[in-house]
């Protein structure tokens, strides 16, 4: 579905991605973890060409988007829903209008259909009562859920989550995790989650990739990831009080 071939990206003179090779399969929940500055968000941005590789190519469904422009790029981007770190809602529009924006701008759907679809999507993320509020009037977690509603309203094939749980309390974090889980279960979309929260990574991921120094340090299923003997992975696990011996139960069936 998404393939990185020998992607190198230099930012500030340093190689943030260093000859990265990565393949994400259709329908899976692929989690990218790593410390700050390890290139997680940069990887995500390459998938939608918010960033362009200095070397190497990025393929979406076998299509090279590295040099795509205009209509090609637009078509490639239409496959994606992108949940930004802060939600990236437009401040002067209500939550409802924000979610309706992609439909109003890019489709010919009649207004009443748009409204009913927006209501349905808001219900899906648990915001059915907050449609008329402005983004500044709702909490950070609700902003992220609204952002998610906007990301999925056009039923994309791939949803990218950039730090969906950062800055949220544990309870809200788990709610978001459940949402991500539901998306892939119910809508059958491919999900790519960038996070440094291992708890959610282990809970929702089908495969977890750990980035470090622009390369993949470890790529494994959650069960294998916990028992990995790579020192970077061990340090990362320990920092979040997750140990091999401790019981780690997946919520996912």
């Amino acid at each position: 579905m998404i393939e990185f071939r020998n992607v190198t990206k230099l930012l500030g003179g340093n190689a943030v991605l260093d000859n990265l090779n990565l393949t994400i399969k259709q329908g899976e929940v692929f989690v990218i973890v790593g410390t700050s500055g390890a290139g997680k968000s940069v990887t995500l941005k390459h998938m939608v060409r918010l960033m362009t590789p200095d070397e190497g190519n990025v393929y979406i469904k076998g299509e090279d988007i590295t040099n795509a422009t205009g209509a090609d790029l637009e078509r490639a981007r239409e496959r994606f829903g992108y949940l930004f770190q802060g939600g990236a809602l437009l401040a002067w529009l209500s939550v409802m209008d924000n979610v309706a924006l992609p439909l109003r701008e890019k489709t010919d759907m009649p207004e009443d259909e748009i409204i009913s679809k927006v209501r349905k999507t808001l219900a899906l993320v648990g915001l059915e009562d907050d449609g008329d509020k402005k983004p500044s009037e709702i909490s950070g977690g609700m902003q992220k859920r609204a952002g998610l509603a906007r990301a999925i309203i056009r039923e994309p094939e791939i949803i990218l989550y950039d730090e969906p749980t950062s800055g949220l309390d544990p309870v809200t974090s788990r709610t978001i995790d459940t949402l991500i889980d539901d998306m892939s279960e119910n809508l059958g979309v491919t999900s790519v989650v960038v996070t440094h929260d291992l708890h959610s990574a282990l809970a929702i991921g089908d495969r977890i990739a750990m980035l470090g120094g622009g390369k993949i340090v470890e790529l494994a299923t959650p069960d294998e990831f916990i028992v990995s003997d790579k020192p970077e992975v061990q340090a990362f696990l320990e920092s979040q009080y997750i140990t091999k011996e401790g019981s780690w139960e997946r919520k996912k069936s």
């Binding site: 362009t52 590789p53 200095d54 070397e55 590295t66 040099n67």
Partner: peptide
């Protein structure tokens, strides 16, 4: 190749 695009 990608460099060209930026450079352009």
């Amino acid at each position: 190749m990608k460099k060209d695009w930026i450079a352009r």
